[in-house]
């Protein structure tokens, strides 16, 4: 088992294309394609990433850490954690329940429902913020009522949480629906027939099967929740130390020409992105090893 795993990792699937003359290009073609593609990669993806850390440390480690423990920066970190801490679990529960209904049952309008769940992906983040202003703002539908009862939603923390939920809405459902559809319902049906109740079936049969997909959805959902800028910017009101999330704090510092401080906060978000990508690669690796794809690979090689 261990040798099979290491073998699979060491043999790049690309080798089979390079080995056959029918699927191999002339060496100069390969070198040119690699050079152009990797230069593009370096120019557009690698350099911006490196620039964040270089700019953050331009004035030394001391300035870097001073910028991070500054009260407004700390407040923005707390608010970002709070917004993600509410939005991610809610969308997790929603995603699992949507995937259960869609993948395990047949009903009319299923494809339409999937399209509706995907909707927040195709809406501009600015509009995602705007809709809550129209609902809960001073001139919005519920504005007068909220005002009467002295409840603030927009330009306050609840609005930020709502906008975050909106933009991260599809992430978990999107990962789970195709996965659970592919797995079918035989295993769950067997558990029910054998006398397990619904919850037990879910915890002991479904959850172990979907754990990698679930983790994948959650980390992507979390990355977006912590990094969202446009939607949150519209509903935040930009009150320092109160309604600024980390991305908004980056904007404020940047617009005040405090570049080192802006990039210091930005570097935390860039680290979050790197951790997200690291976990994502790890999950993909594990999912490929435990899933049916691994068996296909093993039989092929």
């Amino acid at each position: 088992m261990a040798t099979a795993a290491t073998l699979r990792r060491s043999v790049d699937p690309a080798a089979r294309f390079e080995a056959r003359s029918a699927t191999r290009e002339a060496p100069w073609v390969k070198r040119t394609l690699l050079a152009v593609a990797l230069s593009f990669f370096a120019l557009f993806l690698l350099m911006p990433l490196i620039a964040v850390f270089i700019e953050a440390l331009r004035k030394g480690w001391e300035t870097y850490f001073t910028a991070l423990i500054e009260p407004d920066a700390l407040a923005s970190i707390r608010l970002t954690l709070l917004a993600a801490g509410i939005a991610v679990p809610l969308n997790l529960v929603f995603g699992v329940s949507a995937a259960w209904a869609i993948a395990k049952f047949e009903f009319r309008g299923k494809h339409f429902l999937i399209t509706l769940i995907d909707l927040p992906f195709s809406v501009s983040p600015v509009i995602a913020g705007l809709v809550y202003i129209l609902m809960f703002g001073a001139h919005g539908w519920f504005g007068p009522w909220l005002n009467e009862h002295d409840i603030r939603i927009v330009f306050a923390v609840p609005g930020i949480v709502l906008a975050t939920i909106f933009v991260t809405f599809p992430f978990v459902a999107r990962e789970l629906i195709p996965l659970m559809q592919a797995q079918g319902r035989e295993e769950e049906e067997a558990a029910i027939v054998l006398g397990a109740n619904g919850w037990r079936t879910f915890w002991h049969v479904t959850l172990p099967n979907i754990r990698w997909g679930l983790l994948y959805g959650v980390i992507l959902c979390n990355a977006r929740a912590m990094g969202e800028f446009g939607a949150v910017s519209v509903v935040s009101g930009h009150i320092r130390g109160e309604t600024n999330t980390m991305p908004l704090q980056v904007e404020i510092l940047y617009n005040e020409y405090q570049f080192a401080a802006a990039f210091a906060v930005a570097s935390l978000l860039a680290l979050l992105a790197l951790v997200t990508l690291g976990i994502k690669s790890w999950v993909e690796h594990n999912a490929a090893r435990s899933g049916p794809a691994a068996q296909d690979e093993a039989t092929a090689s």
């Binding site: 911006p48 990094g227 991305p247 908004l248 930005a266 978000l269 860039a270 992105a273 790197l274 990508l277």
Partner: peptide, 16 residues
Amino acid sequence: LIDLPFALPTAVAGIA
């Protein structure tokens, strides 16, 4: 790293 633009907050990408 191809997925970096999905994971990196847009404001960070913007200033970088």
